Simulated assay, not measured.
Amino acid sequence: MAQIGNTSQILVNTTDVFTTDQKFATPDAVLTWARDVGDANKVNIIITRSDKKNGIRGRNDKLVLGCDKGGKYDSSQSSTTTASKKCNCPFKIRAAPSTDGSGWKVQVIHGVHNHGLPDQYHGHPRKARLTADENKRVQDLTKRKVAPRHIVLDLKDQNPESVVDATLVYRKRHMMQIQERGSRTELQHLLQLLDD
């Protein structure tokens, strides 16, 4: 993986890390492999196109993978003004069944990214998730009335590589409250707690 260019135009070449002669049994196996390689190199892989052979001319089995920063942000779809992570990244991998039937082969179509790669996955929707142990720890500390910021510090003490932030802790606490409340409204739940 190499970074090319000056500070005004960052190009990161990941062709070498995604180039393989390995054959895969299924498209899901290709996706799993690509995401694992992407995780190791701070590239979030998404499916940009998936086709199945169905007898229609031009339709063959294939899987096209790209970077999550590929494509252009469509501001007409959003009613709010937000920053977009999309920057039309040209990175593309294509997977298709080999002609000899030995499995799916992977080909790097364009291995260069037009953006820098993150140092970590802080705040990334797919990567920044609580593990089973972290979920349990958040539940335990929440029951003990520990503040979210202290829960985050505790989780980072246990695992310095963790990308957990206060937002994830707040979400988990909110989900716990919804599960505890069940089908009751907030007011009904409050009245039930007062009765108890």
Rank of each mutant, 00 (worst) to 15 (best):
Q3E: 06
Q3I: 03
I4S: 02
I4V: 01
T7D: 15
T7L: 15
Q9Y: 07
N13Q: 04
T14Y: 09
T15N: 07
D16I: 01
V17L: 07
F18C: 02
D28T: 11
D28E: 14
V30Q: 11
L31P: 04
L31M: 09
R35F: 06
D36G: 11
V37R: 11
V37C: 10
A40C: 04
N41F: 03
N44G: 00
N44S: 04
I47E: 14
S50Q: 15
N54T: 08
N54E: 05
N54I: 05
G55V: 01
I56N: 13
R59G: 11
K62V: 07
K62D: 08
V64G: 04
C67E: 01
G70Q: 02
Y73Q: 11
Y73V: 07
D74K: 01
S75Y: 01
Q77K: 03
S79G: 01
T81D: 00
A83Y: 07
A83H: 10
K86Q: 01
K86M: 02
C89D: 05
P90Q: 08
P90H: 10
F91C: 11
K92C: 03
I93R: 06
G101P: 10
S102K: 13
S102Y: 06
W104S: 05
H110N: 04
V112Y: 00
G116E: 14
P118S: 01
D119Q: 06
Y121V: 12
P125K: 01
R126H: 07
K127F: 02
R129W: 07
L130I: 05
L130P: 05
L130A: 08
T131I: 10
A132F: 08
A132M: 10
E134P: 08
R137M: 12
R137P: 09
Q139L: 11
D140T: 13
D140H: 10
T142I: 01
K143Y: 14
R144C: 10
K145A: 13
A147F: 09
V152Y: 03
K156F: 04
A166K: 00
L168D: 03
L168G: 04
R171P: 01
H174N: 12
Q177H: 13
I178N: 09
Q179P: 02
R181W: 14
G182C: 12
G182Y: 10
S183L: 12
E186V: 10
L187P: 00
Q188L: 02
L193G: 12
